[in-house]
Design a protein around this nucleic acid. Structure first.
Length: 465
RNA sequence: UGCCCGGUAGCUCAGUGGCAGAGCAGGUGACUGUUAAUCACUUGGUCGUAGGUUCGAUCCCUACCCGGGCAGCCA
């Protein structure tokens, strides 16, 4: 390290505007080819999709060692950055020194040939070294940054909702219990039940399934807020679009109704797509080539058009009148099945669709009751290929109506004291939604399995790595 | 959790009730400003696991494990 000057990234080397008398680059060897008087090394450091071609002359003192470099080895290279004589790259590095930092061997699982996503999933610690996963996780980082920029530029305050929650009735699925009690010998109450009063928090606690209720409290003080953090669902879901641990973005706005909520959701989704198009062009090109041939045109199409908006009633009517036979029949009052949602967004409209005003019976207690007394201000954004990417609503801000809704949902208002206080003191109309960050990434990259857009996926029966 | 498909070399996959195969990767050599380089030779196997049927099972049957797809739950 002492002999090395400050290294530059492969990305900077490749985007250089002039030859450089002396430059250092460090990274991992993707492949090596021998020529007569030198060896070609392709070095990648994850700073961009492309590799830097290194010319390692036969005169190097450690040339025999260089000739045994294989895929996966790490190297530090110092040399001259010069215009390439060959086709396919503008610049290449003619090495004065190639230091083998860490060798690799024949058991290195990654090859320069393509691998299936399923195989790479089993080596989650090495897959970011592949072209596809490097591109996915660079895109993930850019989009995470864009999430914050989008909201910060609009005056939203970032709220860190708690990860551990005492509420087991958020209504969004099964919860993971958080406890320090000994599972083989928990303290018992006289009646034989586990005595959670003796647990760490002196009550049962769980990992959060949503930061919404907490975000509502902050929206009713700071007006516009958002959360962006991990979320946990203990559902035994085994699909390509569910994970036990995922990241969710939940904006919440005071003095906002359903229409404003739908506007924000659409603007947000489009902003993220626009960000990917402008700052991840090279990576998107890879997705368009190897993952989904229609990706780029679909993203551009979505950017250009307003999302279609239909009420649940209209959606049901469209499905019934389509004449298509579904495995599950369409009927007012039942949840839209995946096949129904897919048909709407992929066949009827061929673009994202926002469905709103669902029957109150099939939606959670906190959604605002409409004047028709039959529907609530729910809204789901459905996108082609994935289905639901956003779920949200205007919240019930009327204390008496909210309490009645809780009772209808067999919930005890006494368990929601602080939540009801928000309606007791200075209540305001407010609305918000949740956007699944991984589902957004799936849409932007074309990757069809959620396990491939999370660095280390947690799904039922799988928490290796 | 339910239904369906799959598991054969490091990877991607053929294959047959009777001696285990290819391409790529790895190794050796040749050639060469190459770029998924090329050419020749070559190493490499508990055919997912356990039972069963059979003279004989990688192949047929059963259970289990693992992976994938779809559905439900949702984001």
């Amino acid at each position: 390290m002492v002999s090395m000057q400050k290294p530059i990234s492969v990305r900077d080397a490749l985007s250089s505007t002039a030859a450089q008398e002396s430059a250092s680059v460090q990274g991992w060897v993707r492949t090596r080819r021998d020529a007569k008087a030198f060896s070609f090394l392709e070095v990648n450091d994850g700073s961009c999709l492309k590799n830097l071609q290194v010319i390692a002359p036969a005169g190097l003192f450690n040339y025999p060692e260089v000739q045994h470099l294989i895929t996966g080895a790490s190297v530090a290279v110092r040399g001259k950055l010069v215009a390439s004589q060959g086709q396919g790259q503008k610049w290449e590095l003619v090495a004065d020194e190639v230091r083998v930092v860490g060798p690799s061997d024949a058991t290195y699982p990654l090859q320069k040939k393509g691998h299936t996503a399923e195989f790479l999933r089993e080596i989650a610690h090495l897959r970011p070294r592949s072209n596809l996963f490097g591109a996915i996780f660079r895109t993930r980082s850019r989009l995470a940054y864009a999430v914050h920029r989008f909201f910060q530029e609009r005056g939203f305050v970032y709220v860190h909702a708690p990860i551990i929650t005492g509420s087991d009735c958020e209504g969004a699925g099964e919860l993971f219990r958080v406890t320090t009690l000994d599972p083989s010998a928990p303290p018992k109450r006289p009646d034989g039940a586990v005595d959670f009063a003796k647990d760490f928090f002196a009550r049962p606690t769980y990992l959060t399934v949503s930061g919404q209720l907490e975000a509502e409290a902050f929206a009713c003080a700071l007006s516009k807020v958002y959360t962006f953090g991990p979320t946990f669902r203990a559902e035994d879901s085994n699909t390509s679009r569910h994970a036990s641990e995922f990241w969710m973005i939940e904006p919440e706005m005071a003095f906002c109704d359903l229409a404003g909520n739908m506007d924000l959701a659409e603007e947000f989704v489009k902003a993220l797509i626009r960000e990917a198009r402008s700052t991840c062009a090279e990576d998107l090109e890879l997705f368009g080539k190897f993952v989904d041939k229609d990706l780029i045109s679909r993203l551009d199409f979505v950017l250009e058009r307003p999302f279609q908006r239909v009420s649940y009633t209209e959606a049901v009517k469209l499905l019934v009148e389509s004449g298509k036979t579904f495995e599950y029949p369409v009927a007012y009052g039942t949840n839209l099945q995946s096949e129904h949602e897919r048909f709407l967004t992929e066949s009827v409209f061929k673009c994202p669709v926002t469905v709103y005003n669902y029957p109150k019976e099939i939606k959670p207690f906190y959604m605002r009751l409409n004047d028709d007394d039959r529907t609530v201000t729910a809204m789901d954004v459905l996108v082609p290929g994935i289905g639901e990417i956003v779920g949200g609503s205007q919240r019930e801000e009327r204390l008496d109506v909210l309490e009645a809704s809780m009772r209808r949902h067999k919930l005890d208002p006494k368990d929601y004291g602080w939540y009801l206080d928000l309606r007791r003191f200075g209540t305001v109309p407010h609305a918000g939604f949740g956007l699944g960050f991984e589902r957004m990434l799936m849409f932007v990259t074309g990757v069809s399995n959620i396990r491939d857009v999370i660095p280390f996926a947690r799904t039922p029966g799988n928490a290796a790595f």
